[in-house]
C-alpha cells in the first residue's frame, strides 16, 4: 500500500490503529535493519525500534506531509539511534572505556552474524566512522537511498552529505584494501 493511502486511512475516523498497523508492517523491517547496523546489537535495536514506532504514533497527528512519510519515519529512527549512541558514549566516557571497542566486541561476538570475513571486516571498518557519517554511509551504501532523501532524513544539505559520504567511502575502502588486497 502507498504512503498516501495509509495517511488517508489514518485520517478516517476510527481507522487510526488499522492505518498505523499497516505503516508498522511496511516500515518495521527497514527501520530495524537501519538501527541494527548502527547499534550492532539486537537487544538495543529492538528497544529503539519500539520507541521509534511509539514516537511515530505520537507524532503522526502532527505530520503535515511537508516531507515524504518514509523519510520522516527514517528521520525519527535515525535521531532516536544517534541520541542513544550519544548517551552510551557519554556513559562510556565516565566509566573510562571506549564505546567503539564495545561496539566492535558486540559485532565480533554476535551469534546471529552469518557473513564471511570480508563482510565482518566491512562492518568493523564502518564502526570506525563517526556516528552521523555511519548513518549516512549505511543509508547510501546498503539502503541505496538518493542523496536528496538522505539529506531530508539527516537534515543537512546535499552538498555536505555527498562530501561526507565520499570521505566515508574512501576511508572504508582503504581499510578493506589494506587487509584484503595486499
Amino acid at each position: 500500500m502507498e504512503d498516501k493511502e495509509i495517511l488517508e486511512l489514518y485520517r478516517t475516523e476510527g481507522k487510526q490503529e488499522f492505518a498505523f498497523n499497516l505503516l508498522v508492517q511496511k516500515y518495521q523491517e527497514r527501520i530495524y535493519w537501519h538501527i541494527r547496523k548502527l547499534t550492532c546489537s539486537h537487544e538495543d535495536s529492538n528497544d529503539l525500534l519500539q520507541s521509534t514506532l511509539v514516537k511515530i504514533w505520537e507524532n503522526l497527528p502532527s505530520f503535515r506531509e511537508e516531507a515524504k512519510l518514509y523519510t520522516w519515519v527514517y528521520r525519527i529512527a535515525t535521531n532516536e539511534t544517534l541520541t542513544f549512541l550519544k548517551k552510551k558514549r557519554i556513559g562510556a566516557m565516565f566509566s573510562l572505556s571506549n564505546y567503539d571497542t564495545t561496539l566492535a566486541n558486540k559485532l565480533q561476538s554476535d551469534p546471529s552474524f552469518n557473513g564471511d570475513k570480508l563482510q565482518m571486516a566491512l562492518h568493523k571498518a564502518i564502526l570506525h566512522l563517526p556516528d552521523k557519517q555511519r548513518a549516512v554511509f549505511n543509508l547510501r551504501y546498503f539502503q541505496e537511498l538518493k542523496y536528496e532523501e538522505i539529506a531530508e532524513i539527516m537534515g543537512t544539505s546535499v552538498g555536505s552529505l555527498k562530501a561526507s559520504y565520499h570521505h566515508a567511502y574512501k576511508k572504508v575502502k582503504e581499510e578493506l584494501q589494506e587487509k584484503f588486497c595486499d
Partner: peptide, 18 residues
C-alpha cells in the same frame, strides 16, 4: 585496481533475528 566495495556480496545483510 578493483573497487572492493563494489562487490555485490558486501551489500547483503549478514545479520539475523530470532
Amino acid at each position: 585496481m578493483e573497487d572492493i566495495l563494489s562487490r555485490s556480496s558486501l551489500k547483503e545483510n549478514p545479520f539475523g533475528v530470532p
